[in-house]
Structures are given as structure tokens and as C-alpha cells.
Design a protein around this nucleic acid. Structure first.
Lengths: 183, 183
DNA sequence: AAATATATGGAGTAGTGACTTCGTTTACAA
DNA sequence: TTGTAAACGAAGTCACTACTCCATATATTT
């Protein structure tokens, strides 16, 4: 691939991340304009709009997985789990796409790459959960599916309701109280 | 209004409730076809698609408010609160529109009628919450905004993740543990 | 610096969906 | 039962958006 083509590809990805982050229904033209390229260039790099969306989705999921893996190395597994949870929910509030990505990652319909990225991210989160449970920071009878559902729900709830930071934190405090082991 | 016009209006509302319940992006044609009328008839009763969506939204919110008011008469305020919460989340799983309605009701942008309906429904829910707190079934330091956010989040999470009934109940068990007063 | 393969952007094409027009039909009053 | 105002549906208009074509421009190789 020629150097200018590679540059443009990166610019398009960044623009798509931004544009679709605000509204997944945005048009391909919007992405092209923000990236400063013609429409044709977008479609040369991503054959369909769906393919572009999936590329953005994959990127988001990989970033989340990386953060989870990074936190997994931490000394305090309980803190690591709750910090990851909090970060995901907080960012979803400003980046709609993250909440969408989380959802799509669990529901299929996405392409091969995105599916794999979703799997990787869920595995990393499962690792955080298991470690936190072993450390006694999360009740041991909570299973992955409902905890993941809680993560999705909290994200989408915070996003959809446009919660201010304070209310969001109070909501998370309630959620965390439900996750902590009975005293 | 002529009798046949009134009939058709009702048929359109029912069809819209069904169609938009499955996908809010559905077209007006779909609604007209399901209602068994021509497109023009839909637009004669509802000047824009938005107006039709708002009518459906209002209907949903009024139904939820009615159910909350009905439960408010119950002898056990704690049970009433949790039953309402559970019902809303369970139904959202099959009716996308409820989750959307809840969201929209808190975020503005909706028309006057829908806004009023949203207000009424939130007030009714607030009534359930306060009564449950007085009865000692919900921790007294939880405020309405975060509890409502939790309701929205649980609904949207269950809907988005397409949870099966069992996982959904386990998720709600975690949420309820966070809402109950510390022992 | 010339040759050439690679990339580019803007003007098209096709399909969809919200909304309108208008000739026809139907409910209702006299 | 007949007149008429109200309501109807089918076919259109218009705007928008995903996607394509092609003449032009640019990177790279020798």
C-alpha cells in the first residue's frame, strides 16, 4: 500500500471513531468530510459502510481489552475490577459508541474480526472478575453473564439518561453494593 | 370526527406500537401496511412521523404510570416497588419501545404531551420508591435520580444484551441487593 | 526525470423513505 | 335515497444516502 493511502486510512478510522461515536446513524459523507478526503476514498478502504463500522467497533473493543489486561497485572484485583467497571461506564457517557460496542460484542451479527475482538475483551473482563472474587472483593456467587449484563446496562443507562457525573457515581455505588460480598 | 376515521386512528396507534416496538427505525409504510390503511391516512392523523412516535411513547408512559399508581395502593410497599421494577425490566426485554420510552421521558426533546406523560410516570415511580423506603425495604440514602437511572440501565441492558429470563433475574437480584438497606 | 502503477475526488446512479396531491369512495344528515 | 362534506388510497415528489465511474494527480522505481 502506498504511503498516502495508509495515511488516509488512518485518518478515516479516526474520523469514523469520532463521528459514529456521536451518532451511529451518521452518513459516510460526514466521515469523509471530517477526514478531509473524498467519499470514494472511504469506500476504497472499506467496501461498505458496515465494514467501516465494524472496523471502528473492533478498535474500541481491542482498546477495552488492553485496558483490562493492563489492570489485570495490578496488585489489588478488587480495585482493578471496580476501576475497569467505572472507567467503562464513565466513558460510555461521552462516547455512545462504547456502549454500542459492548452490546454488539455480546449479541453476534458482527463480522468475524469484531466478534473475535468482543470475545477477547469479554475474556479479559472475566479474568478481572474471577481475580476480584478470589480476593474477596466481589461476591463469589455472581456469575459472568449477569455481571457483564450489569456492565452493559450501567453503560447504556448512563449514556441514555445523560447522567451527570455525581448521579452516575451514586448509581455505581448502588451497583457496587450489590456486587460486594455480604458482610 | 367520523366513525371510520376514529377506528383507523386506533388501528394506526396499535400498529405503530407493535412496529416501533420491534424497531424504532421502521418506516411509516410498515405501520400503514400493518394497520391495513394507506400511507396518506397515517399522515392525515399524525402530521409527521415524529408526532406518531410521540403518540406511541405517550401511550406507553401512561400505561406504566397507571401500573405504578395501581401498585401504590398495595399493602406491602416494598413488594410493590420491586414488582414494578421487575415488570418494567422484563417487558423491556421483549418491547424495545419501553426502554426507549423510559429514556426519552427523562431526556427532553420529546413533545409536550410526551413530556407530561413522562413526568407523570416518574412521579408515580417516585411515590413507590418513597413508600418502599418508609417501609424499610429500600435503603433511605438512595435518591430518586440514581434509582431511576438504575431502572433505565437495567431495562436497556436487558434489552440490548437479549438476556434470557434466568440471567435477567440474577442481574436483578444483584441490583436489588444494592438497593436493600444494609443489615 | 520519465514511466507507470496506484490513489484520489467529484459527479453520477439507484434505492429508500418522509410527506403531498388528487380523483374516488364512504359515512351521515335531511 | 340522495347530496355533500369528510375520509380514503395510489401514485407521485423531493431529499438523502450508500455506493460507482472515470479523468486527473501523485508516489515510487529506475
Amino acid at each position: 500500500m502506498r504511503a498516502d493511502a495508509r495515511d488516509n486510512r488512518a485518518r478515516i478510522m479516526t474520523a469514523a471513531d469520532e463521528v459514529f461515536g456521536q451518532s451511529p446513524a451518521a452518513s459516510t459523507d460526514d466521515v469523509a468530510k471530517l477526514a478531509g478526503v473524498g467519499i470514494a476514498t472511504v469506500f476504497r478502504h472499506f467496501a461498505t459502510k458496515t465494514e467501516l463500522l465494524e472496523a471502528v467497533l473492533t478498535l474500541r473493543l481491542e482498546r477495552l481489552r488492553d485496558r483490562a489486561l493492563q489492570l489485570a497485572g495490578s496488585a489489588d484485583p478488587g480495585a482493578a475490577f471496580y476501576e475497569f467497571f467505572t472507567q467503562v461506564v464513565s466513558e460510555s457517557a461521552s462516547k455512545l459508541a462504547i456502549a454500542e460496542a459492548l452490546t454488539a460484542s455480546g449479541v453476534a451479527a458482527a463480522g468475524e474480526e469484531a466478534r473475535a475482538a468482543g470475545h477477547g475483551m469479554r475474556e479479559a473482563f472475566d479474568g478481572l472478575l474471577t481475580a476480584a472474587q478470589k480476593a474477596g472483593a466481589v461476591r463469589p456467587d455472581a456469575h459472568f453473564p449477569e455481571v457483564y449484563a450489569l456492565l452493559i446496562g450501567s453503560s447504556r443507562g448512563a449514556t441514555a439518561a445523560r447522567l451527570d457525573a455525581e448521579t452516575r457515581d451514586r448509581m455505581l455505588a448502588l451497583v457496587y453494593d450489590g456486587l460486594k460480598p455480604p458482610t
